[in-house]
Design a protein around this nucleic acid. Sequence first.
DNA 1: AAGGTGACTAACA
DNA 2: ATGTTAGCCACCT
Length: 115
Amino acid sequence: MTDFYQRVYEIVRGIPIGRVSTYGQIAARIGAPRAARMVGMALRSTPSGSDVPWHRVINSKGIISIENLAHPPEEQANLLMAEGVLVRTIDGMYTIDLPLYLWQPQLVVDKGETL
DNA sequence: AAGGTGACTAACA
DNA sequence: ATGTTAGCCACCT
């Protein structure tokens, strides 16, 4: 995993079903806390058929990004709801209760790796 | 090789 | 509280 994108995919693959993460959180876990936009870029080029659950990544406000050009936000909302995530529709935007669904990975201090 | 572009964010006004 | 601004940095012309 020498590629930035690959690291993004690896982390996103670790998001459990029914949980979500944010662009910033993933960037931080890669070690580049300011590279949230790059995370979005990486997810942009993930095919629907891939094993990367791109739909489990939303923005820091708990909203499905309306700037999303790769897939309609509606599709992302459907995928999340299919996993049991409660998605509210407010003013044409899809919002998620972030404190409730945010993925909070445990850190393994021993090896400096994460679960 | 150099500059433009964002599935973002935190900081301001 | 809500709207704007300015950093951000790997990728793609």
